[in-house]
Nucleic acid binder design. Structure first.
Lengths: 243, 243
DNA sequence: CGAATCCTTGACAAGATTCAACTCGGGTGG
DNA sequence: CCACCCGAGTTGAATCTTGTCAAGGATTCG
């Protein structure tokens, strides 16, 4: 599926926004940078939109852009030849993706909801980086953060039970919602059960059963399939850590 | 267990080696850098040794150093409160570890064999980086590589069967041995079965059984527990990808 | 030689998957 | 407007891969 808008607006004014004013989150790519660095990024950025379920780029594809999410959410995943899938990350406004070397992207990126992305051409970004060590430092910092998250996810995938996995997942969504200034509960589940399962290394049935179990235990409520209320976050946290 | 040598030799001459001549691998931290950059790194590096099974640093510890392996191998891991362990990486000569932000190290690092490490103090490294964008770029590149490896490992942990996991593991060791100029087979298994299990998200029994199965199928030979010969690497590769 | 550790093997149990039926809600078209 | 259909989610029963528990080799090292 193609992006909604294939002729992105360049720099200032894309969708009426300039990077200078676009602080979607403190953890955003451009957050915490001095004004002149933001200016330089602003000069090379364009905004693009994708419809829900649209593929932003595919694993192995030549990596031409770095993306930062202005609105909506994105999932990253890898596939095995027979179609088995591992989602490696869900991303929300203010988060970025697309870091890659010459080998191309290491994963496929797909829009979970309609998304608005800030897109930085890699070549131009490289040029900007020559004279903006701050930005490069920021990029390294973000990569290190991603790395820490990846290690955490390996611990989850390799050593946690289904119960612990689902609990961890809910807590993670809650914490990240909070960091974006949203309430810690109820939380939105913009992804389907299949996506949750492919993120946690489970099947949809196991995810569904586990959620139902939490509901029966009174730890969560599920007003509908797309939302969850954490009734006893503390206990959920215990379960997540192996309690 | 303490390091063998707690009074590291500084800069040139540690164990009779200078960074200028220490090209343990093309993928090493300092490989591919211009001579003057290597010189600057050389000025702040010290070499340290650790005995097998010694802890180099622990998860959460304030991150004071960045390490590069001159000789020996290292494992990185994370623990759950109840002791369950996930090894996130095995590292060999030329590879580096210890990237961290202010949150401290994201994992524990432990010597698998006796190791010789090049140790870069983070504060001094930061200063060097101010005037050496090449090095920073290299660091970012290495982080991106690590990230790609982490994603690959998530796919393994979340979606591969025990058979596929063990096959992938053997192939990975073989490929990495090759990259270091060693023969692709036989390969050394410097880690015990417990470590392999904790790396693959399995139990030692399953690892042992799977290896035995491969042996019976004639795909590998196990001269002893610490070495494996890949008799039909091609088939092992098939198994690894889900064939 | 004996003790300790690691690895292998076997029998059994359990957690998660698979297969299948059923429910729910939303959209479509008669 | 309503019946129908479709996709997504839930639930149940059977199965299976992997884990658990236990015992038996092998290797090392004092």
């Amino acid at each position: 599926m193609p992006p909604l808008d294939d002729a992105p607006v360049r720099g200032h004014g894309g969708f009426g926004l300039s990077c200078v004013h676009c602080f979607v989150s403190d953890s955003a790519f451009c957050a915490g940078l001095p004004a002149n660095d933001v200016q330089r990024l602003s000069a090379i950025v364009s905004q693009v939109q994708f419809a829900a379920h649209a593929t932003i780029f595919e694993e192995g594809e030549q990596a031409g852009f770095l993306y930062s999410i202005a609105g909506g959410s994105v999932k990253l995943y890898k596939l095995l030849p027979d179609g088995r899938r591992q989602i490696t990350a869900f991303l929300f406004p203010g988060e970025f993706f697309g870091l890659a070397l010459d080998g191309g992207y290491a994963y496929t990126a797909e829009a979970l909801t309609p998304v608005v992305l800030c897109r930085f051409p890699r070549r131009k970004l490289d040029l900007v980086l020559e004279n903006a060590p701050r930005i490069e430092k920021r990029l390294l910092g973000l990569a290190i953060n991603e790395l820490a998250a990846a290690h955490e996810q390996m611990l989850l995938l390799g050593r946690k039970t289904a119960r612990e996995k689902v609990a961890t997942f809910l807590m993670m969504l809650s914490r990240r919602a909070e960091r974006r200034g949203l309430p810690a509960t109820p939380i939105a589940l913009p992804m389907g059960r299949t996506d949750i399962a492919d993120y946690l290394g489970l099947t949809i049935e196991t995810v569904s059963r586990t959620l139902t179990q939490f509901k029966r235990e009174g730890v969560i409520a599920l007003p509908d399939a797309g939302h969850a209320e954490l009734l006893v976050p503390q206990q959920l946290c215990c379960i997540a850590e192996g309690g």
